[in-house]
Write a protein that binds this DNA or RNA. Structure first.
Lengths: 219, 219, 219, 219
DNA sequence: TATGAATGAGTGTTCATTCAT
DNA sequence: AATGAATGAACACTCATTCAT
């Protein structure tokens, strides 16, 4: 009687439902403020069941981070052709990566909020997890800079530390734009527009640097 | 015996000591995880005294954010010459602002962490406070782009929305580099190095855009 | 080992046990001085369970007041025949009501103390709740005076405000006697004795008033 | 400079000011909820000064109760001629006492609230203090009934316990009417009206009882 | 006479987590 | 597979009270 009781559902499915509810709750209220009660209720199950499957709040959050990280990074990898070993000019590669990134963060705002706003700021052990994601994104960019350097025939013009700094700058600007784009309720820019603006801003400087041209304070 | 008992100290001084302790605690553990007990102990006073002066956890955090925001933004304003109404070429202005920014965030890492990692992610009413700070930084950049456009004799080449996007990208990349610089325990880049890398990355693209030159996906 | 651990018990039962403990604690120590810790311990459960079921100290107290009010007023209503619509001479009705009242307050001294000593004096919102109870008792008395007036064929001899005053005087004297009776540890008067004394004191004056006879200061 | 600082004031005066503030605060918020901070502020002095003069919250409250009790009971004593040893018919004496009582409680509502609503309900040691006041009022009434009995030439018609019950009923009805009168914001009855209503209600029954006439349940 | 500075002890409330079914 | 019943530990906040001046 009543449509209240959900049917018995296989574990794998229930787990995903729980993760969906948790991601939304963590995004909305933050890691600490989100309560297991709320998450369980949002998932339409009882709290003990959440514990049976995900064991603890920490593990639950970890699972969220892992899932969201994986889908994001694989979207980027696929777009940049790293998965398939395709060959592409570096700017094309960066452009594709950025488009994929902005498209994904726009499509999954809660997941992105969990990664960017929550996990990074909750101290260990979560910061490390996101650091891994970030490292992968930075690595993509780093590799990209490397192959661009080869194309330009000017390997070694940049110190490793400077490359690291550049990669963080690029990733940071992308993150910032993603948040900006998501927060514009009305008239939000399309992923491609956003990517184009960022390419226009950064690609010339990047090419310059690869050719040894750098900005200097005038006198 | 022992240095346990602090002398009676005027209120204004004690308040600053409390804010120091609170900023560090919030930076280390996050807003929710930092406990008033810990903060009071770190400040060397009893909890009721903290409440007598700062009234609540929320107001305490707000006071931290306000203080750290104020010192940061005034450092930037001073460096960019906005306070004194000086005239400077746009790139020089940007360069000075970035140097001040990286110097300040390096000198006050906890304060920066509170602003960038904590306040932004704790929802209302704190997000709004940091949004104000960010808006001021974005405004500085926006104004700067405007004056650069005038210098280049090409006003109006950029839509307002694109300028907004660019400003967010620039601010985001700076924030990201500040965090990266702070997190490099060994061999940390100097504020000037960091600023130089970022200028090299972004200035060429900015100049291009002001001249109507933008990156386009090849074919 | 030991009878410490109580069995798992259905919610409805536990709630009543909690209310029992709370009523006693509130009666003994007063609303403010009674602590949730004590109440939980007296109920043989942990504090969180009390909160799970009753939500807050205020709601817990409210629930106590509601329960005690309900049992008292229904005892009176039943005795005066208001429930069943019986017809009775007014003095008989008053007599029955008083007997029920004194019997109930003697049987539930803690409940009575919560209503009479605590709820009334703790300001809003509790005062209102007891005001409702009192209003019901006053209304019973008022109706009773009205029907007595009809019996005496002298409707309208008393102003509404004076009836209100009389009702409060009657209710107040009953309340006072209930407390007096409860506080006599040794040789306590039976409910019927108490009721008889009060009837002897008040009924003649009431009859006089209905016939327009009132006391006047001599000369 | 500024009219902020109150002049140095003799101790006796300051103490009365403190008691005034305390009585009002206790009446408004209740014993527990009234805070020493509020009371000190309302009295226009610092908290340590309150402690210097009144020693503790408990002693402060005790002093309030004592002062309010004393003024009330002496008003009654004076009115009933007990102080001066005057001779008066019993009904006249009761009438005078009631008038004095209702006049006093109407003139000092906060003091009456402290006695009737707060002190009685805060458990020991305050309940005892008010019990003393009540005992004095009951004693006045008891003596009055005794002298009325002599007048009527029918000593010993009433058992001591019944007299005690009657006295509590009378006192209770007076208390209840005082509260009722004080709580009627608009169109409040004058003390004399209130007293007249109560006399009309109770005196006939009292006379009857002294003559051995009592109410009996019919059949 | 009078006070700003400071605290120990306690209160109501919440939450992640487990047990028995 | 799933849950109602139950708790230990912590947290924000308040208050009566004292000390140093």
């Amino acid at each position: 009687m009543g449509a209240k009781e959900r049917k018995r559902v296989p574990r794998a499915v229930r787990e995903q439902e729980m993760l969906d509810a948790a991601v939304e709750s963590f995004a909305r209220h933050g890691y600490r403020a989100a309560s297991m009660d709320d998450i369980a209720e949002a998932a339409g199950v009882s709290k003990p069941l959440v514990y049976q499957y995900l064991h603890s709040k920490e593990e639950l959050f970890t699972a969220c981070v892992r899932r969201e990280s994986a889908t994001l990074i694989s979207a980027i990898r696929e777009a940049t052709g790293l998965e398939a070993g395709q060959v592409m000019p570096a700017d094309r590669q960066l452009w594709n990566g950025l488009c994929a990134f902005f498209a994904h963060t726009a499509a999954h705002p809660h997941g992105w909020a969990v990664l960017h706003q929550q996990a990074r700021t909750q101290g260990e052990p979560f910061a490390t997890q996101v650091a891994v994601l970030r490292a992968e994104m930075v690595e993509v960019v780093t590799r990209l800079i490397g192959s661009a350097a080869q194309d330009a025939g000017c390997d070694g013009a940049l110190a490793a530390r400077e490359v690291s700094g550049l990669a963080h700058a690029l990733v940071g600007s992308a993150e910032s734009m993603a948040e900006w784009a998501n927060s514009r309720q009305s008239d939000p820019p399309s992923p491609k527009e956003t990517a184009a603006t960022l390419m226009s801003l950064c690609w010339p400087g990047l090419e310059n640097l690869l050719n040894g041209v750098r900005w200097k304070p005038t006198r």
